[in-house]
Amino acid sequence: MRNFQITDETSPQLAVACRGLIRDFGDGETQTRVLHGIDLDVRAGEITLLVGPSGCGKTTLISIICGLLEPTAGDIEIFGVNRTSLTGRQLVEFRGRNIGFVFQQYNLIPSLTAAENAAVPLIIAGLPRREAIRRAEQSLAKFGLSQRIHALPSQLSGGQQQRVAIARALVHEPRLLVCDEPTAALDAHSGQTVMELLREVALESNRAVLIVTHDNRVFDFGHRIVHMADGQIEKIEERQILSPASTGPSLVAAH
């Protein structure tokens, strides 16, 4: 396993702090500004929803936060580490260790079983394959997939595939989980299950969960809803969420 130490100088609740983020695409006359000085905080133990119309800059923003894209200007701190100061291998390792990803289309490797897919981040981190798969199986069990560990993605329903993707995103215990439209390809029931899982992940593990979504059915699961438009933050809604033990929001009912 890699040993990447991060210093936590900021508030323990603050997972991500973006200040004045600007991102341009293209050069010269074709240059387009996609992000216009974004200031955003993402807190640990919360679900932050990033919502807005297509093309408003949501994907660009999360790509920059995750270190998949560099900002044109501005700073990002993730758990106290100035992300923009990390380069090359440092950044790749930081991302691999601290950030988990959940994608709209799950992005599971079709030829790997559920357990093998979930083990990928551990294998990337250098854990021996058997040990990685053993830990992935434990992770899948937590998400109610202990009977499906040997199933290929093609043998799983959309909801099950997304749960495998969440297990994969969390198997190496990252402190920030970034989800891109996690319920978009799911029916209401599966979406409900996935959102409940994500809420548990945020609340029980004190993990920061950042979700990009168009799906207004999931708005009730967000502690904070960040509305974006034209590369800017339009407004931020703060919400009170019930604990997972009590009756939480229902995607099915909302639907």
Binding site: R89, G96, F101, N107
Partner: peptide, 13 residues
């Protein structure tokens, strides 16, 4: 390509 991009995002150099 999507899988390679995925692996790249997850920390594969």
């Amino acid at each position: 390509l999507k899988q390679f991009g995925n692996l790249k995002a997850m920390g594969v150099t």
